[in-house]
Amino acid sequence: MPVPSLFDIMGPIMIGPSSSHTAGAARLGKMAYKLAGGDIRRVVMYLHGSFAATYRGHGTDKALLAGLLNLNPSDERLRDSFQIAAEKGISYEFIPTDLGENVHPNTVRFVITDSRGETFEIMGSSIGGGQVVVSEIDGMEVNFTGERPIIITAHQDTPGVLSHITTLLFERDINIGDMRVTRSREDKSAHMYIELDSLCGQDLTAAIRCIPGITRVKLLLPIEESDVPGKENP
């Protein structure tokens, strides 16, 4: 391993008992919350591997739900998340399952329903020491770690949509770190995932929304957890 930072060794400040099963789970929940735009009425969590086997004893269930309530991994309200969700009228369910052979042992698939009844699926894994990665968003393979901003779009599969978006990014001097496009042949719909090297504002999403053929845009900014010393900006 390369030389770790002092803050990789000392910290994070977190709610126990496990960095991967509790702190990482809370972080995954928070990413799902952000990806869902904060509008969550119901969530079903499919737990895989070690998450499925030990989720009660590690408080993985409470931590996942706490993240979905926008709580940080260091927030002491983590352990009361069932009650807080009930107060907010958010329903939830945990289903231990098998998500497949090549799936990381600490993986969860969120199926989120928002207030308009639309559903949204996110799969992510806690890969050790509280670090997490989102591997799938609405069936699209991604590799989102919460460190860089991403844009996700749904659009009609027609020529020109991509060049419109890349032009908007170029005009703002924003470099693209990673980009994926997937499409469904049946209904001529497509999804795009763009990871950006630098921050952008909501004006960009507004501009993207105006592009002909775009049906949905989500901007996800880096996950900030000011209570976690190892994670905050210098």
């Binding site: 060794i9 000392m10 910290g11 994070p12 400040i13 977190m14 709610i15 126990g16 008992p17 496990s18 960095s19 509790t22 702190a23 408080g59 409470k62 260091s74 002491e76 983590l78 352990r79 020491g129 509280g130």
Partner: peptide, 21 residues
């Protein structure tokens, strides 16, 4: 014990060994 009860600790280097330092 605070760690096992979902209390707040400092992982150093890990949560499981958070009492020693």
């Amino acid at each position: 014990e605070i760690n096992a009860s979902m209390g707040k600790i400092v992982a150093c280097p890990t949560a499981g060994s958070c009492g020693i330092v």
